[in-house]
Amino acid sequence: MREIIFDTETTGLDPKSGDRMVEIGCIEMVNRVPTGNTFHAYFNPDRDMPAAAEAVHGLSISFLSDKPRFHEKAAEFLEFIGEEAKLVAHNAGFDFGFVNSELDMCGLPPLSRERMVDTVAMARTRHPGAKNSLDALCTRYGIDRSHRTRHGALLDAELLAQVYVELTGGRQIGLSLAADLETSDVVTLVAIRRDRPFRTPRPHAASAEELAAHSAFLETVKSPLWND
Rank of each mutant, 00 (worst) to 15 (best):
A136K: 00
H151N: 07
C106R: 01
R115P: 01
S112N: 14
G170A: 10
P110Y: 12
P110R: 12
D104E: 15
P128A: 14
R150A: 15
T139F: 09
Y141N: 06
T149M: 05
S112C: 12
L111A: 01
V117N: 05
V163S: 03
N132T: 00
T139V: 13
Y164M: 05
L108P: 04
A161G: 00
R171I: 10
Q162V: 12
R171W: 12
L134V: 06
M116D: 06
M122C: 08
T168F: 15
L159P: 03
Y164I: 02
R171P: 00
E166C: 04
D104S: 09
G142D: 09
A157G: 02
L154P: 03
I143C: 05
T125S: 13
R150N: 13
S133Q: 11
L155N: 04
E166R: 13
R124G: 11
Y164N: 08
A157Y: 09
A161P: 01
Q172I: 08
Q172G: 07
T139E: 03
R126V: 03
G129M: 10
G142N: 10
Q162A: 09
H151F: 07
P110K: 12
R148S: 10
Y141D: 09
L103P: 01
R171Q: 13
G170S: 11
R148D: 09
D156P: 11
L155E: 01
A130D: 09
I143V: 07
A161Y: 00
L134Q: 07
V120G: 10
C106W: 02
S146V: 14
E166N: 13
I173F: 14
V120H: 01
E166S: 07
L159N: 00
R148K: 14
V120S: 08
R148T: 06
C106P: 03
A157D: 05
R124L: 07
G142E: 12
G170F: 12
G152V: 03
N132D: 08
M122T: 05
A161Q: 02
R171G: 03
H127M: 09
S133F: 10
V163D: 04
G142P: 03
G170P: 06
I173K: 15
E158C: 11
G170T: 07
R126K: 10
E114K: 14
I143Q: 03
P128R: 04
G107Q: 09
T119H: 05
A157I: 08
G169A: 10
N100G: 03
M116H: 02
K131C: 11
N132G: 07
M116T: 06
C138E: 07
G170C: 11
E158L: 15
A136R: 03
L160C: 03
R150Y: 14
P110Q: 14
E158S: 13
H127F: 13
V163Y: 01
D118P: 00
S133P: 04
D144E: 09
I143L: 06
S146E: 15
L108S: 05
D104I: 06
Y141R: 10
R145M: 09
Q172Y: 05
R113P: 02
L108A: 09
L167K: 06
H147S: 13
R145E: 08
A136T: 06
